[in-house]
Simulated scan of single mutants.
Amino acid sequence: MTEQVSTGATQADQGPQFSLQRIYVRDLSFEAPKSPEIFRQEWAPSVELDLNTRQKPLEGDFYEVVLTLSVTVKTGGETAFIAEVQQAGIFLIAGLDAAAMSHTLGAFCPNLLFPYAREALDNLVVRGSFPALMLAPVNFDALYAQQLERMQTAGNA
């Protein structure tokens, strides 16, 4: 029989906690409205990327963060394909002040999710018989700072 000894340490005494619990695809879609005709055209793509994040608290210190990548690729003025992935993660986050929590949910977690979302999107596009997108890395810290600046400017107006 083992004896448990309580140290009286609280969560605040332990300091900040961060743990990735699960990464998963929440939603995935692909549409190639001009197939198969689009494959017979010269491939000169223009890529539009829409990036979005959202988060919601779950029970206790658990949070879901969802990174959405929506891509529309056109060639010759016609839409070749539209692809979207919602890559999500469940994170255990505790012991952070409000500013650190906001940064963690708004920048750090999306940074962790992005490589998985990029891979899922590339795989989806290749299965549609198009060249892989190979999206460039995204600086979520810079995007987060820009969003804070926009919010402060809007608050002052």
Rank of each mutant, 00 (worst) to 15 (best):
T2R: 13
T2E: 14
E3Y: 15
G8N: 05
G8S: 00
T10E: 08
T10D: 06
Q11C: 08
D13L: 09
Q14Y: 11
G15T: 10
P16A: 01
Q17I: 07
F18H: 01
L20W: 02
Q21W: 09
R22Q: 15
Y24G: 08
V25T: 08
R26I: 09
D27W: 12
L28K: 10
S29P: 09
S29I: 02
S29T: 03
F30I: 02
F30K: 01
A32Y: 04
A32K: 03
K34M: 08
F39V: 11
F39P: 10
R40M: 14
P45G: 06
E48I: 05
E48L: 07
L49C: 07
D50C: 07
L51R: 05
R54I: 02
K56R: 15
P57L: 13
P57Y: 09
D61R: 10
Y63V: 05
Y63A: 09
E64L: 13
V66P: 00
L67N: 07
L67Y: 10
T68R: 14
L69C: 07
K74R: 15
E78I: 13
T79K: 03
A80W: 02
A80Q: 06
F81G: 01
F81R: 05
A83I: 01
E84H: 10
V85L: 05
Q86M: 09
Q86V: 04
Q86R: 10
G89R: 04
L92M: 11
I93N: 02
I93C: 02
A94R: 07
A94N: 05
D97A: 13
D97G: 14
A98Q: 14
A98I: 12
A98N: 13
A99T: 14
A99I: 09
A100H: 11
A100Q: 11
M101N: 06
H103I: 09
T104H: 01
T104I: 04
G106W: 03
A107R: 04
P110R: 08
N111H: 12
L112D: 06
L112K: 13
L113E: 00
F114P: 05
F114A: 12
Y116S: 02
A117H: 06
E119S: 00
A120D: 03
A120E: 05
L121V: 06
D122S: 00
N123S: 13
L124N: 12
V125L: 00
V125M: 02
S129C: 11
S129D: 11
F130W: 07
A132G: 03
P137Y: 07
V138Q: 01
N139P: 13
F140A: 01
F140K: 03
L143V: 13
L143F: 12
L143I: 15
Q146M: 14
Q146T: 09
Q147L: 07
E149K: 06
E149W: 04
E149G: 02
M151D: 09
T153N: 10
A154C: 06
A154R: 04
G155V: 03
